[in-house]
Simulated assay, not measured.
Amino acid sequence: MARVVCVHGMGQQVQGEDRLRSVWWPALSDGLRRAGAKGLVAEPDVAVGFYGDLFRPAGQFLAAGDPPYTAGDVEDGFERELLAAWWQAAAESDPGVVAPDGDGTLAATPRSVQAALRALSGSKFFANLALRAVVADLKQVRAYLTDQQVREQARGRVMAQIGPDTRVVVAHSLGSVVAYEALCALPQHGVRALVTIGSPLGIRNLVFDRLQPAPAGTGKELRGTWPGGEQLAWTNLAGAGDVVALVKDLRPLFGERQRSAMLSNGVHAHDATSYLTDELCGKAIAKGLA
Results as ranks from 00 to 15, higher is better:
3 R>D: 01
6 C>E: 05
7 V>H: 00
8 H>E: 12
8 H>A: 09
9 G>D: 08
9 G>K: 04
12 Q>G: 05
14 V>F: 12
15 Q>F: 13
15 Q>M: 13
18 D>E: 13
20 L>G: 07
21 R>T: 02
25 W>Q: 07
27 A>L: 02
30 D>V: 14
30 D>F: 00
39 G>T: 14
39 G>H: 14
40 L>I: 08
43 E>R: 01
48 V>T: 09
48 V>K: 04
50 F>C: 12
50 F>T: 10
52 G>M: 09
52 G>I: 08
52 G>N: 07
53 D>T: 15
54 L>R: 13
56 R>E: 13
58 A>H: 12
60 Q>N: 08
63 A>I: 10
63 A>M: 11
66 D>E: 14
67 P>N: 10
68 P>Y: 13
75 E>D: 14
75 E>C: 14
80 R>A: 05
81 E>S: 15
86 W>S: 09
89 A>D: 06
89 A>F: 02
92 E>N: 07
93 S>A: 12
96 G>R: 04
96 G>N: 07
99 A>G: 07
100 P>W: 01
102 G>Q: 12
105 T>A: 03
106 L>D: 06
107 A>M: 09
111 R>K: 15
112 S>H: 12
114 Q>A: 05
114 Q>L: 11
117 L>A: 06
119 A>D: 11
120 L>M: 12
120 L>T: 08
120 L>I: 10
120 L>W: 08
121 S>R: 10
121 S>H: 06
122 G>E: 07
128 N>Y: 04
131 L>T: 10
132 R>Y: 12
139 K>R: 03
142 R>G: 08
147 D>V: 02
152 E>T: 04
154 A>S: 08
154 A>G: 07
155 R>Y: 13
156 G>I: 11
158 V>I: 03
159 M>K: 10
160 A>P: 12
162 I>G: 06
162 I>L: 00
166 T>L: 03
167 R>G: 03
169 V>Y: 00
171 A>L: 01
176 S>T: 09
176 S>N: 07
177 V>K: 05
178 V>Y: 00
179 A>G: 13
181 E>Q: 11
182 A>S: 13
183 L>C: 10
185 A>R: 09
186 L>F: 04
186 L>Q: 13
188 Q>T: 04
190 G>Q: 13
191 V>E: 02
193 A>G: 03
194 L>R: 02
196 T>A: 00
197 I>T: 03
197 I>E: 01
199 S>K: 14
202 G>W: 02
202 G>P: 05
203 I>T: 11
203 I>Y: 11
204 R>K: 15
205 N>L: 14
205 N>D: 15
207 V>C: 08
209 D>T: 07
210 R>M: 08
214 A>W: 15
215 P>T: 08
217 G>E: 03
228 G>H: 01
228 G>Y: 01
229 G>S: 02
233 A>M: 02
234 W>V: 01
240 A>E: 14
242 D>A: 02
242 D>T: 12
243 V>D: 06
244 V>F: 05
249 D>Y: 01
253 L>V: 09
253 L>P: 09
255 G>Q: 09
256 E>Y: 01
257 R>S: 10
258 Q>M: 15
258 Q>D: 09
260 S>G: 15
269 A>G: 14
271 D>W: 14
273 T>D: 14
273 T>H: 11
274 S>W: 04
274 S>I: 11
275 Y>V: 14
277 T>Y: 07
284 A>N: 03
284 A>V: 03
284 A>K: 05
285 I>L: 00
286 A>F: 01
289 L>D: 00
